[in-house]
Design a protein around this nucleic acid. Sequence first.
DNA 1: CTTGAAATAGACCGAACAGTAAACTAACTG
DNA 2: CAGTTAGTTTACTGTTCGGTCTATTTCAAG
Lengths: 204, 204
Amino acid sequence: MGRTSNADERLMTAALDLMWEESYGAVSIDDICQRAGVKKGSFYYFYESKSALAVAALERMSQEQRAIWDEQFSPATPPLDRIRARCEFTYKKQTDLKAKHGKVLGCPLCSVGSEICNQDEQIRDKIREICTRSIKYWESAIRDAQTEGLIGPGDPAAKARCVFAYYEGLITQARIYNDAEMLRDLGSMVLAHLHAKEPQAVVA
Amino acid sequence: MGRTSNADERLMTAALDLMWEESYGAVSIDDICQRAGVKKGSFYYFYESKSALAVAALERMSQEQRAIWDEQFSPATPPLDRIRARCEFTYKKQTDLKAKHGKVLGCPLCSVGSEICNQDEQIRDKIREICTRSIKYWESAIRDAQTEGLIGPGDPAAKARCVFAYYEGLITQARIYNDAEMLRDLGSMVLAHLHAKEPQAVVA
DNA sequence: CTTGAAATAGACCGAACAGTAAACTAACTG
DNA sequence: CAGTTAGTTTACTGTTCGGTCTATTTCAAG
């Protein structure tokens, strides 16, 4: 009944893209509407605020990425290979984004999260939720690696939080310095961080 | 000749505080003027824009911190102790900031840098400059530690960038999760990252 | 004490902003 | 095809924003 629309999805796409490229605060509702090809009236028909749209857009992104994460961190894959796969994917993705936008965009969880965590509770909570969810992938890989004796002992959850901080920290540096090549050896760097025995044990 | 004023310094203080607490984009010139007790006319007498003020405020902060860095990373101190001192200082500072503001504020270089690096070239360049400068402290400590055989070989500059990314990444996580206790063992975590032989080799 | 430079005050402007209201259009449903 | 519902459009509001302008105040040097 009634006419159909995908304006809500176009708005999510536009909002995520814009706040990823620039920042949450630098993007106005008018900007989002313009990029999405949606009029302001329709915006408020679907979302009550920019904040609500951001929450929806982040959750959608998280769900879209889920299959990729599940594949990369498949228990059928040797645990350290999972980490390497994730890191190589990230390097490739940041490289592609730079080719497309001329800028390294980094990770919106980190850039937007750090920007709004003291301003907007809804977005902050959603980002925390997504981060916590993704740390579970790292944690599981670390636990499996420990079981196989590939890395040393110690609380896998704590190690996962550290690896996540390192991983996101490097991506953030790549954004600030606009240099995707800082992520070329991301896999080796992360595995070295975990004290994993490595073919090349060079890069710190 | 003419009257004197410290309004320019009050503006720098207010601007840094506000964009540290919230974000660059969330703070208006009016907000800064109000907190500084300065009228808009005076603002534009001293600075040509919010961006110019931010650059000045960041540079001033960097200069004010310089003595602290020089002391913590004094070549008279054993290299790994320098790193530990810096990390303990950071933990204490973030704890104090949380007690004062009710929120973990993290590091403005990272939060503001990640926010505006694709928007404002002046601020971005200033932040890169300050980051690059502070990485030199880490690099020198790492090189000295290598000389003393405390950590393994490998390009000290690259290692320093990694440590910096890890250090800032952990601080960013503490901001997002509003949990200063994530930084309690910052020193041990950073030293473990560097594969330094440690009294307690537990935390990853 | 005078004079002029340094600094302040605050009114003002236009643009951009978030948000509203109501008329209008398209499509499915019976 | 008539009615209903979902979605769209546009014009409009009041506010906040960045930025300007000019009159005024303060102070220190001559």
